[in-house]
Amino acid sequence: MDKRRVRLLQLALLVFLVLGWEFSVRLGWVDAFFFSKPSEIALRIFEWFKSGEVYRHLWITLAETVLAFTSGTLVGVAFGLWLALSPVAAAVLDPFLKALNSVPRVILAPIFTLWFGLGIASKVALGFTLVFFIAFFNTYQGIREVSPVVLANARMLGAGRNQLLRHVYLPSAASWILSSLRTSVGFAVIGAVVGEYLGASAGLGYVISQAEGVFDTTSVFAGIVVLAVFVVLLDVAVSVVERRLLVWRPEPGQEGGTV
């Protein structure tokens, strides 16, 4: 299947869905009050960007996402390294980490708002609790899965503890960590938006929540569309970084290419 054909079919499907929606509303099959209309939603988004009022919200959500993502990843990776290389600490902390990770994070949002206020901090904290565990578990797993032969080889070649960390453990865990980053970005956004949704004065989640409060479905859908595009762009950015850092990894089916 060649790429262009897939793209064409995707485009056709999109057009079909959007037109189907638009005409279902126009022909009165579904109620515009509940479903709005693609044309109106597009117009609303256009107005938002034209007036510039959406930039403030986008900026806030982006800041929260980036802060939660970086802090959660850094602390999670450091924690994962520590526990993977120190079996005693891992054995002691294991039940605590499992218990913490089993707490549904949405429950924490009101507490974080109480602790950190209505501003950015409470959203970052919520995103952090989501991202931390993803980064932590993946780092931990990545370190545990280091090939024992590669490890023994590096030791025989004279690697000290720090050199093992830098040249063996971290690069080996890197593929796990990096492939978890895309999931992490998604969760950082969820943390930010859910936090805004439950109590904030700015951000995309706030915009959607406000619109729902006055039954403005057009703005709700417009907010969802902007949010979706925002997440896709972040995802693309992370994949670019991932591909840059993992040049050494074989593409599927490329193993032992040259003879």
Binding site: S147, V149, V150, A152, N153, A154, M156, H167, V168, P171, S172, A174, W248, R249
Partner: peptide
């Protein structure tokens, strides 16, 4: 001693 292993022991992330 230098050790040549049976399995692939090269670091896959290094040239």
């Amino acid at each position: 001693a230098g050790y040549l292993f049976q399995a692939d022991a090269l670091l896959p992330w290094k040239t």
